[in-house]
């Protein structure tokens, strides 16, 4: 066959760049690929099996969107750039990290994402909790504390605390390092995956953890509100209080969620209860809210059913792996 013939046979491709929390990857995608084809390729490359928490995110006209799985990549409203960039991120959060995150890679990606959200102050965190979290992050990165090796200044390059916390105290970089190191030294013997899991176990109790917030308006009196969607349900907050919702609808108590143009309607299971209607800023945002509701609701229901064979196998594998690691760690 001639070179020309070979060339003709090759399918047309386009390039994408996928950015994870700690790596960048480039892929050649076939023009006909659906979102799922690209997503599966990324998951296979990462060795990730707990795929249901994740998605490929992009930004279009200032709004965050997630690549749809069942639609062709090129038929979606993605940015016109070469290569097209996607962020591989957790889209849904577990209700209990210690029970649901099985693979080490899944835990690690969650750890990195939540740590960034805390440092970027997207999740509010008190100063004392940030110090404790920082000590686990240091244990995960540096292993056991060794004063001969971890000399003063060893944390100078690490971003460990949110800027807001640093500003709250008259403390030098070295004083912070000393404080964090004192707690870091307490974690001796904890392996990297355990330290990251301890970090997540603390972070999951923070009020803003795992909540996607959207500004909304209620039709009645046009008060500005925030809608929060998370693993447990839908919450309504005052615009200046993202910590405690005024009202919550657990997934099991919701009959139906629907939208038309900018209006979204939540119908509670209890037919006597008031139907909650509100407006979001754009149709696109409504679609995103609904997407997050459907995904979170599905996971909520899945958690309350018997584990699939795949999950049972993964749980057994995770248990074995943990036991093996613990033994190896103790032996060392």
């Amino acid at each position: 066959m001639s070179i020309r013939g070979l060339k003709k046979k090759q399918p047309k491709t386009f390039k994408v760049k996928v950015i994870t929390m700690d790596a960048e990857m480039e892929f050649s995608c076939e023009m006909k690929w659906k979102g799922k084809d690209l997503f599966d390729l990324v998951c296979r490359t990462l060795g990730l099996r707990e795929t249901w928490f994740f998605g490929l995110q992009y930004t279009i006209k200032g709004v965050c969107a997630w690549l749809k799985m069942e639609k062709k990549v090129l038929e979606q409203e993605i940015p016109k750039e070469d290569p097209t960039q996607f962020r591989f991120l957790a889209k849904f959060y577990p209700e209990k990290v210690e029970e649901e995150l099985l693979q080490e890679i899944t835990q690690h990606l969650f750890f990195l994402q939540v740590k960034k959200q805390i440092l970027d102050e997207e999740i509010h965190c008190s100063p004392e909790v940030t110090v404790l979290l920082a000590s686990y992050a240091v244990q995960a990165k540096y292993g056991d504390y060794d004063p001969n090796f971890h000399k003063p200044g060893f944390l100078i390059q690490d971003e460990l605390l949110p800027k807001r916390v640093l500003k709250q105290y008259q403390m030098t970089v070295h004083m912070w390092e000393e404080k964090i190191t004192a707690w870091y030294a307490e974690h001796r013997g904890i392996a990297r995956d355990e330290a990251e899991m301890n970090y997540l176990k603390i972070a999951q109790d923070l009020a803003m953890y795992g909540v996607n917030y959207f500004p909304i308006e209620q039709n009645k009196n046009h008060r500005d509100l925030l809608l929060g969607v998370d693993a447990k349900g839908i919450h309504v907050y005052s615009i200046n209080n993202r910590f405690s919702p005024n009202r919550s609808f657990e997934w099991s108590a919701i009959r139906n969620i629907s939208y038309s143009e900018k209006e979204l309607t939540i119908k509670p299971l209890d037919k006597k209860a008031e139907v909650f209607k509100f407006f979001s800023s754009q149709l696109k945002v409504n679609k995103l809210i609904l997407q997050l509701c459907i995904g979170n609701h599905d996971l909520f229901m899945k958690r309350r059913r018997v584990d699939s064979i795949e999950i049972q196998q993964m749980k057994a594998q995770a248990r074995e792996e943990k036991a093996r690691k613990k033994m190896e760690h103790q032996r060392l």
């Binding site: 100063p127 404790l132 709250q168 105290y169 008259q170 707690w183 307490e186 603390i202």
Partner: peptide
């Protein structure tokens, strides 16, 4: 000596207390 890591809440209390003397007036 590093503080003893007893329980989560005790740890938080200890950190809070140790930070207190350094709090800026506006945030204390």
């Amino acid at each position: 000596n590093p503080p003893k890591f007893v329980t989560y809440h005790k740890a938080l209390q200890e950190i809070r207390n140790s930070l207190l003397p350094f709090a800026n007036e506006a945030s204390s």
